[in-house]
Design a protein around this nucleic acid. Sequence first.
DNA 1: CGTACCCTTGACCGCAGTCAATGGAAGTGG
DNA 2: CCACTTCCATTGACTGCGGTCAAGGGTACG
Lengths: 253, 253
Amino acid sequence: MSIVKILPKSADTAAALHDARQEHLSGWTRGGLDLSDRFPSEIRSVAARTEILTEGDFSDGMVIVRRGWMMQYRILEDGRRQVLQFGLPGDVIGYRADPAAPLSFSVEAVTECEFAFVPFSIARRILRQGGRDAQRLFEALSLSLDSAFDALTDAGRRNALEAVAHFIWRTSRRIESGSDEETVAEFDFPLNQEQIGDLLGLTAVHVCRTLCKLKSLGVVSLCRGKLRVEDPAALAEIAGICETHPDEWSIAG
Amino acid sequence: MSIVKILPKSADTAAALHDARQEHLSGWTRGGLDLSDRFPSEIRSVAARTEILTEGDFSDGMVIVRRGWMMQYRILEDGRRQVLQFGLPGDVIGYRADPAAPLSFSVEAVTECEFAFVPFSIARRILRQGGRDAQRLFEALSLSLDSAFDALTDAGRRNALEAVAHFIWRTSRRIESGSDEETVAEFDFPLNQEQIGDLLGLTAVHVCRTLCKLKSLGVVSLCRGKLRVEDPAALAEIAGICETHPDEWSIAG
DNA sequence: CGTACCCTTGACCGCAGTCAATGGAAGTGG
DNA sequence: CCACTTCCATTGACTGCGGTCAAGGGTACG
């Protein structure tokens, strides 16, 4: 029901740490950002681990990420969790075909976050009016779908090493697409191993083993929330990326 | 490149068989059907197994299914296949955020099919004009996303029995939502075990074992392309569906 | 009657899950 | 400032679900 539930105060200080790290993400140019500027919506800043939307509740709007990382997930009866997508600045999260049905997912802030909450009435108006804004909204949804297909392929048909490598690869592409630089060797990576595993269908323990292997192969390094791609070619190779075309293709990630 | 490639002639006769079976699907009321009626698009009928779009090719449009089952999938370098979604009448398949990039998936007809091919120029126009049509297009995309999230959860966090049960459950819900009747105990189910496995991240052999178990438990029966849910409660139980609310909720499938 | 496709079943194996212990880092409270 | 707690990463031993390989059978089609 409630839009914002603040979790233990401890999160605030951790969030402050992340705050500085997230700065360069503000350069994201994805369509969602414009939308949240151009339409009346509630802008909120929340601490890391804040639950924004809760599975089973009723909600009358969607979320546009403006700063930080967010996470959309689902919990099974026995507590297993499936992460559906991570939301970076510009991403739109939480639209549904039937706004009257209870939520089939939860949304929570991974880091300290700023986001816009756009009521469905506004979303409907954007679509009714058409134009550039409707296209942007459609495009944002389309990016989510691409992302979901990637995650599905990772979970369904790649082994742990391939899946983790592919996830890191496409995450770095997303970071790049939102940054000014052509390539970004090192970037903020606030996810823990459980969150990664819950997206890819692995356990935290096995994500750990897999990341250790990638590190020992000299492909990536990961320390204190900073991820560095040491050997982009090797990463792409393991991820099974075909380099047949210049990599301007498929920046969808 | 080519929009339509006809495969071995043998498929035609098999398709004719399916033809009659698919009849009742024409009752689908999903938004995509209206769209394909209201806008200039190329309507095509193809035999089962016809490849409509090919990964890596360039295509300037999207597909709206009107009759039959279609399938969107991706092939990894070594031949592993991940099915991304099955398209039933009314579903929209093949939109992308960047229409200029080569396709990251293929689309093929599972059964004999009729579909509309809508050029992106039309799609853009629909969004630019706004109104009910833009909403319908958005809603269709949103249904795809729901469907992808379901498949992701099946592949990532459910075991084989749960995943297959859940897939059958939501497929029957989709069939119901497109039919006139309240509940549909038996319906046409043209997928083979390899196709099911390629959606859920299983092998055909293991899908076989799993289906056999579901049959021996008396939950479903499946014979000659007809699937019958013998024990809906048991199916929902295995699928992990919480029956806390009347089941009008979450018909997204 | 032969062939192609698909389903079924069994034996075996390996990737990833489970359980458990350890240790470090960061936050909390006395 | 220092115990204490919490969270998370790491590592090892063991297990099991589902993959792999292979053989056999049914059905439809040519």
